Simulated scan of single mutants.
Amino acid sequence: MIIGIFFIPLYLIGCTKNEESSGETKIFEIANTEQIVGKKDEEIVTLRKHYMILNPPKDLKDLKELVKKYSKNHPVEGEMKVIEGKNRIFYMSFYRESD
């Protein structure tokens, strides 16, 4: 009974809606998820980046347009100057916030 008194309020606090997610649509890179795959002697280097979409549009066409616009306005090619001269592959993964 005493354990329930302490853990139920904590559980309910964890289930409340994220205050940052209410409002306008936001896209941001998820911290510490960038991966660069490839060794110095390999010809191809891969960059993987992961992004979160807060308050995504319900319509999938609108969501697709939002991701296209973000990708166009935030190119990742310029971020890989360390490995210039090699063939580069970019993967951008987008995750949308859900209920």
Rank of each mutant, 00 (worst) to 15 (best):
I36N: 06
T33R: 05
M1T: 12
K58C: 00
Y95G: 00
S21E: 09
E77G: 03
V82C: 06
V37C: 04
Y51R: 02
E20I: 04
S98C: 13
C15E: 15
H50E: 15
E65D: 11
Y51I: 01
V37T: 15
Y51H: 01
S22H: 08
V67H: 00
V37L: 12
E97Q: 15
G85F: 05
E24F: 05
I2P: 06
M52I: 12
I30G: 01
H50P: 03
R48G: 05
G14E: 11
K26D: 01
F6Q: 12
K61N: 13
F7N: 11
T46F: 02
E43W: 05
I3S: 12
R96H: 08
P75V: 06
R88L: 15
L54A: 07
L12A: 13
E34F: 03
E79W: 03
K49A: 10
Y11Q: 10
K39R: 10
H50M: 13
H74Y: 08
E24L: 08
I36S: 03
K26Q: 13
L47C: 09
K39M: 09
N55I: 00
E65R: 05
E43C: 04
K64A: 07
E20T: 07
I36Q: 04
Y11I: 14
M1D: 07
S21F: 09
I53L: 00
S21Y: 07
K81E: 13
P57C: 02
D62M: 08
M80V: 15
T25Y: 02
E84H: 07
I27Q: 01
Y70Q: 02
K26V: 01
S98I: 14
D99E: 11
S22M: 12
E84A: 15
Q35H: 08
K17P: 01
N55C: 00
L47G: 04
K86C: 06
I30K: 11
K49I: 07
D59Q: 03
G4F: 12
